[in-house]
């Protein structure tokens, strides 16, 4: 059954008379890198909260990793990873402690936690810094570590909310290298970004405008469709149609 990682049908969320998310329908395939774009206030965060099982939809259907978005939110949470730019790691814990914490809350066994920790430290070349407090790390390293923490329990899907905001251009590319590595091993990636070059690294993109998905396709096809030379132009073209303001 699990060829689709995410399936959403006419998913909506209203706050009073305000339709924050207005009947969005889309599928994300297993192992796909799916970019979820839109202007501030278009409804991305609200939609994402429903998909990760922390906000109940007003109407519509969705399944995440095969689990129902209404009745199986605990199972959803166990099978996904989540990382945002704002919250990712505990500053006052060391690198090792952060990873142990994430492993612990997802119920990994001690030997698994140990093994995975070694893997992460090797991958990020952080063996020497294992006992350093996270707050002493440069932002780029923190973000790469946060991604590893979100991936620590080998989730089926990982949700990344603006993971590279403010990160230097070299580290941003290293971060995307990690995203591709995870996708090649079968993890589904659901990512939001304000960097339009990063939008082009996605297999497919959806563009939200005023709570609705106004366009969805591969970056190449979208550029063709909008007769644009870059994703930036596609974004500007679509987002200008918005009548809502801000977030």
């Amino acid at each position: 059954m699990n060829e689709l990682a995410i399936k959403a049908e006419k998913l909506s969320k209203n706050f009073g008379s305000f339709k924050a998310v207005d009947e969005i329908s889309f599928d994300v395939k297993k192992g796909e890198v799916f970019g979820f774009l839109g202007a501030n206030g278009a409804g991305k965060t609200t939609a994402m909260k429903m998909l990760i099982g922390i906000s109940t939809p007003s109407s519509g259907k969705a399944s995440i990793a095969g689990y129902d978005i209404y009745n199986e939110t605990e199972k959803i949470k166990r099978n996904i990873g989540y990382m945002s730019q704002k919250f990712s790691l505990y500053d006052d814990l060391t690198i090792g402690e952060n990873l142990r914490f994430f492993g612990g809350i997802y119920g990994l066994s001690r030997p698994d936690i140990k093994l995975n920790t070694e893997k992460v430290l090797d991958r990020l070349h952080l063996q020497k810094e294992k006992n350093a407090l996270v707050k002493s790390l440069p932002l780029g390293w923190k973000q790469k570590l946060a991604f590893s923490a979100a991936m620590f329990h080998s989730p089926q899907i990982v949700f990344l909310d603006e993971p590279t905001g403010g990160v230097d251009p070299l580290t941003r590319r290293e971060f995307w290298d990690m995203i591709y590595e995870a996708a090649e091993l079968g993890t589904t990636i659901f990512v939001t970004t304000h960097y339009m070059d990063e939008a082009e690294y996605c297999n497919r993109i959806s563009m939200m405008v005023d709570g609705k998905i106004e366009a969805m396709n591969s970056p190449k096809e979208l550029k063709k469709q909008f007769n644009a030379s870059s994703m930036d132009e596609v974004f500007l073209d679509l987002a200008r149609k918005a009548t809502r303001t801000g977030d």
Partner: peptide, 8 residues
């Protein structure tokens, strides 16, 4: 920072 391309 954190602002979409149109608002930027």
């Amino acid at each position: 920072t954190g602002v979409d391309p149109v608002s930027r």
